[in-house]
Design a protein around this nucleic acid. Sequence first.
DNA 1: CGTCCGCGTCAAGATGTCGTCAAGAGCCAG
DNA 2: CTGGCTCTTGACGACATCTTGACGCGGACG
Lengths: 225, 225
Amino acid sequence: MTTILVVEDERGLRQALAINLRRREYNVITAANGAAALAAAGEQPPDAVILDLGLPDMDGADIIRGLRGWTGAPILVLSARSGQTDKVLALDAGADDYVTKPFGMDELLARLRAALRRAPAAEDQPIVETAAFTIDLAGKRAHLADHAAVHLTPTEWHVLEVLLRNEGKLVPQRQLLQEVWGPAYDTETNYLRVYLAQLRRKLEPDPAQPRHLITEPGLGYRFSR
Amino acid sequence: MTTILVVEDERGLRQALAINLRRREYNVITAANGAAALAAAGEQPPDAVILDLGLPDMDGADIIRGLRGWTGAPILVLSARSGQTDKVLALDAGADDYVTKPFGMDELLARLRAALRRAPAAEDQPIVETAAFTIDLAGKRAHLADHAAVHLTPTEWHVLEVLLRNEGKLVPQRQLLQEVWGPAYDTETNYLRVYLAQLRRKLEPDPAQPRHLITEPGLGYRFSR
DNA sequence: CGTCCGCGTCAAGATGTCGTCAAGAGCCAG
DNA sequence: CTGGCTCTTGACGACATCTTGACGCGGACG
């Protein structure tokens, strides 16, 4: 899912933005000042940033440059100042768009879509390699160790993706069911048995003795490299 | 040198733009209406387009879509209309920025720099060649392996262009629909079936067994060389 | 030693998706 | 006005995927 970082010191506007974005199926992180913004961006790299320039703790252009050092994600600037020089400075510092307050929510969302359309889709899903197989989550490609291509169905990809994102950690049955099938299915453990078996049959050298897609009886499943 | 196409019916503004751009070492082509703009873009593909929406001969969104079918260059829209819906329509049709008149020249130039910075320099994927066909994205020409020319419609180009830009990677149905038809069409998977079939019929030696334009059932499509 | 529960396996029916075709609408050129 | 090209839209069969139920196995527990 697309992640948006909202940096805005005024509480009301920050929440209004977050609500509108979440309604459009974006994953939203918020920050109330420049320091928090840079910290948040480092922790969970966003696909785009909406940045208010009137922050109390840091100068706007410095935040933009700080973000630009970390990420190539597009930056949409919000500002109460409508002067040309303000806009030129922000844009030349690395911002992708500049919207003056007050602004319309529909327009902002449209500008966000335009910026995301241009962006090269952050590569937050690297390639995972094990002794037995190689998985490219972004490109949706799977190979065995001998380079034979493996075809996975949409649901198989989804299950595998959740497990790989939590590499080494145990994923409870309920979490897996909820993420893949939705909140209403959190008792249908049948599905997990069927799909884990399918993934093992396709990916594990010896499906009866899985080395990477491991069952933790009574608890859930774990992916181990 | 960077080439900018200026589309503006009012003579005074057109010349003012051209002069200011040339002073910044841009190569400028001008057009006074939509038809001339599309013709000029096909002849000498620009690196960016500055487009007035108040043209006499064509609707704004149609021009944007027309250009988008032939080029990936960023489009900056100029307009006297400041309503939100105007902006949303233009941006969703494929524009990269929307500036309301009257505007400051410095701001426009800064926005142009921002757009060009983001754009993937026009000639970074000039010609894509496969065993079956050759595609010249810049010149908008397509040949089969036996040198027979193939004619593609604007929409076909656009679909193909998105797929080629992501060579080897899977392009989700939703992304393809949003980039080609706009955010409102992200469930019309019919279109994809129709246009992929058409592209295969025109480009693949055996359309029933495609080797380069590949369907990943339930996920999307993939171009493979 | 026997029962019960969770897990892996399998198969069959239900569901959804894809490719294909064709008809109609809109648009431009002659 | 007419004809051609393109885009949209609906319908259909073929096929892959998902869902669902049944069965056997093994370990935990009484």
